[in-house]
Design a binder for these strands. Structure first.
Lengths: 169, 169
DNA sequence: GCCTAATTGACAGCATACTTACAATCTGGC
DNA sequence: GCCAGATTGTAAGTATGCTGTCAATTAGGC
């Protein structure tokens, strides 16, 4: 007998991995913003600060590869960090196109001070799960993100991007 | 001995659940858009179509609760769907503030036709994992999203939102 | 050495995702 | 039946996240 097409129900949304990822991302951002309200930093801005801290003198294009953010998006993020005086852009001598990124004193201080709040936020996201399940979920997500790296429009290219630097990590 | 604060490395980003969720969401959208390119529908627009199909005559506020999208965001989404002639807005008789949402013929047809592509996309997101791991990840994500529901700015309120309707489910 | 290729940062444009605010409207308490 | 307060849709403002494109600059093939 010919199989009828399945009826379209809300399960086509609720049970879809894509919907769960979107929903969890919304929740994660909400928790982060709540815990870090005192610092007026978004998750993206925080990630940029960490990367510039870890790779001082990196340029915007390489930074976008290191945290897998779109180059255009990152430009705006850096602009905001600069206007908050957390980050400085200095023209590179060897290449007139490039601007090198550095944390200001205030940027380094903010990063140091926000860390406990960030850790609280990250913990809260997984809090509802049992400890063993947290580990499993983290491991599977790490695996999945890694294996799907090329599927995203801006793949993570941590190593490639750092070949020109002292290659600190 | 006093414990030194941990050095800030890129692990503060890469190993953080928030980063993994963001990254996976990026990947999921990229895969969805790629598989559904022929239909010019985003994941959010697809979810809205499914919900309006399942709950014809729903209003925008209730719809936002049913798929946990922000009311403002959803307004723009509906506007775009309307301009593509996939959705109609009709004023409610009993309440002059409310506009009821319906799929057009084209909207229903598009939804019917896009389903195979959506299912391909959803499958691709988890493809790299072993079958058993896919199940585990889906179960844990479902659990986590549910338990964290109240933490998001726009919690899912499927039942509440549908009390006024025929309550089709 | 020169000219094509690629790269870099910037910009414009579209689509989420949130905030606050507002006018129109409805509801409940009295 | 009126009025305070809630609800609905909408709008403006900010922040990702992507697509393009562009000028300036650099690098490579020859």
């Amino acid at each position: 007998m010919p199989s009828k097409p399945a009826a379209i129900t809300m399960d086509a949304v609720y049970a879809a991995p894509g919907y769960l990822f979107r929903r969890m991302q919304q929740i994660a951002v909400a928790i982060f913003v709540e815990e870090c309200r005192a610092f007026d930093l978004t998750p993206v801005q925080y990630a940029a600060l960490v990367s510039i801290h870890t790779h001082p003198g990196i340029d915007a294009t390489r930074l976008s590869a290191v945290i897998a953010f779109d180059r255009s998006t990152l430009g705006n993020v850096i602009e905001r960090l600069e206007s908050k005086a957390l980050v400085e852009r200095k023209p590179a001598r060897e290449d007139k196109r490039v601007k090198l990124l550095y944390l200001t004193k205030a940027g380094a201080a903010t990063l140091r001070e926000i860390m406990p709040s960030v850790e609280r936020a990250q913990a809260r996201m997984l809090q509802p799960l049992k400890a063993a399940d947290r580990k499993v979920l983290l491991a599977l997500m790490t695996q999945l993100v890694d294996l799907n790296n090329e599927a995203s429009r801006v793949p993570l290219r941590a190593e490639d991007a750092l070949e020109h630097l002292g290659k600190s990590g």
